[in-house]
Design a protein around this nucleic acid. Structure first.
Lengths: 339, 339
DNA sequence: ATGGGGGATTTAGACGATTCAATCGGGGGT
DNA sequence: ACCCCCGATTGAATCGTCTAAATCCCCCAT
């Protein structure tokens, strides 16, 4: 007949006022035991379910947090999401996971939606952290924490030192004797990518006989890695890089597949270092060297900062947390090349 | 100073009534051009953002759909989610992705939250489709579509023929000459798992000299696969299975790693067939045979059914869509064993 | 000049839960 | 017997948006 019953019907059936039902729901302690029982019985009988939209409207703030990531299909981000969700759960908060697919338009759309929902805050790995839409949203008062990306201005952020990550990878490859190295990632406008690129570039610059080539992709997925791999495998041996550093593991996995298809041996003909150290990197055809980021911790910390900001909004000081990456060396780059 | 401005402040600044602003927002056509301009100017100046909670309360129904999956870290489910989201996007609907982690308690918690939000519908891969909580929710009127699981009663569902999947895998292994086969998955109470188990069991029953062993796990992840793999690798050769069929690819990947560590050759000493055919299966140390499910299509179809149900709620006929799985044979099982 | 027509705009409730000031009722103290 | 106090309960106002009915106003036709 009618839709879900409201507090009003519950009250009528229990023979009390709506105020009492609300008290029962929010401060059961102040309701007399027998009243309490009658209300409970009424709720059960009617199958009453609280209307979150109404409470939210009244309260002015919601209990959900938006998490916008670049690619849900990337295990790095699902690990990150798990970390964030674990903490949210403890705070009785919901997480709304949004996938921007590295597309500013989709990202903007999600931000709109989240702001309209008046979420209590947003965790985001932005495509471009100086996006005016994001800035405007922050100025209008939605707490935002940048994830996997250091904040410059007045924002909290949780990130990993990508420049160091790039240096670690570069140093490792140079020490192994490689003199022609490819850096593959993209878009280069993304800070994570450009920092990793800058990191390896800086290390390469220290030795003056290493050639570093850059390859840019639109999206960092397995398919794109395979495509670049095919291109590079087809190069003449004299100019072809002997090592590749890829800005994430999906790219690296695709790249590795292309090497196998082209008949190039890894690591002898081509050494490979990826980024993120997702679980699958270890299980790959040739176990993948990778720069590890603490994904789950990243998510957890970001949510922590957000909760902190929301709770002590009066005088909150923005913090930028930075973690250190680790290079995990596996078979894909474990080969000493003679000069 | 004050929080986000409401329609009321917009109206005041533009010198019109709230009704006009609302009209501007919802039926711009009936607002006079110059009024329209003034309202727009007011909105921009004030940085007005619609309050979804309020519209939702008024309208009685929300524009978000809940998607509850067993494991977001499993690419099968993220692919599925992408399919669902793609269609949702076209319908101007939001998707709230929830991760039950194969835990009925978490699942219940998510269902509570979603119902309180009065979501327009729920897509769920339930732990147990006869869960009374789920049934109650449906009876209270929330449209639910079962995903990756056939509905028995009055519900829409989108699934893949798991029994057939089990038969395909079993048949393939038996034809390759295996006579001791392990089935690994769990919990067995989950219909997907039990159907796959029943499928291979049925095929095995047709030849009376094949021994099928069952191994149950709590959660189907890489870690659990590795653990079972270690256990099986430690068995004496005479009783050890020569082939394993695992109820998903994460298990299979972990299992494969354990074989490598134990020094067993795949497929010679141990043939492996997984399930889902996630992207990483192909890139594994030994490319994995797997029963492919059309994950993205599954998500897309489920969302389609839901939208259909929501739109024509008057007389909606529940439908059960069933897709066929395909066996993809790769190196991990490509070996003929002599009788 | 007057009435009507119709487009534009306004007004007045909902929607459901929460909160707070107001009220009720009963028991204890004098 | 009276009053006071306090715990329990009530009722009304509120949050921001939408809609249906009502009003306004300008212009045209008679």
């Amino acid at each position: 007949m009618m839709g879900t019953p409201s507090i009003k019907e519950v009250a009528r059936r229990a023979g009390v006022s709506v105020g009492t039902v609300s008290n029962f729901l929010n401060r059961p302690g102040i309701v007399a035991p027998d009243t309490r029982q009658r209300v409970q019985e009424s709720i059960d009988a009617l199958g009453f379910v609280r209307n979150e939209a109404a409470r939210h409207l009244r309260a002015g703030k919601s209990r959900t947090v938006g998490l916008v990531v670049l690619d849900v299909a990337n295990p790095f981000f699902t690990d990150l999401a798990e970390g964030a969700e674990a903490l949210a759960y403890e705070h009785d908060t919901l997480v709304m996971l949004c996938n921007s697919k590295t597309d500013p338009v989709r990202e903007g759309h999600h931000l709109d939606q989240l702001e309209q929902q008046r979420v209590m805050g947003i965790l985001i790995t932005p495509f471009d952290s100086s996006d005016p839409q994001l800035t405007a949203l922050v100025e209008r008062g939605t707490p935002v924490v940048l994830v996997d990306r250091a904040a410059d201005r007045g924002l909290c952020s949780v990130s990993v030192d990508d420049h160091l990550g790039g240096r670690l990878a570069g140093n490792h490859l140079i020490e192994a004797g490689h003199r022609r190295i490819a850096f593959i990632g993209g878009p280069f406008t993304m800070q994570q990518v450009s920092d990793r690129k800058a990191g390896i570039t800086a290390i390469v610059a220290e030795s003056n006989d290493v050639d570093l080539q850059y390859y840019e992709v639109d999206v960092m997925g397995v398919v794109e890695g395979r495509a670049i791999g095919e291109r590079i495998a087809a190069m003449p041996v004299r100019s072809r890089p002997t090592a590749a550093f890829l800005a994430n593991d999906l790219l690296a996995l695709g790249f590795l597949q292309a090497m196998a298809v082209a008949g190039l041996r890894v690591p002898r003909d081509m050494a490979i270092v990826g980024y993120d150290d997702i679980d699958f990197a270890r299980a790959a055809a040739v176990p993948l060297s990778s720069v590890r980021q603490p994904a789950e911790l990243l998510g957890r910390s970001a949510m922590e900062l957000l909760q902190e900001e929301v709770q002590s909004s009066d005088r909150h000081r923005h913090r930028q947390v930075i973690f250190q990456p680790d290079l995990i060396v596996r078979e894909s780059s474990d080969f000493k090349r003679r000069r």
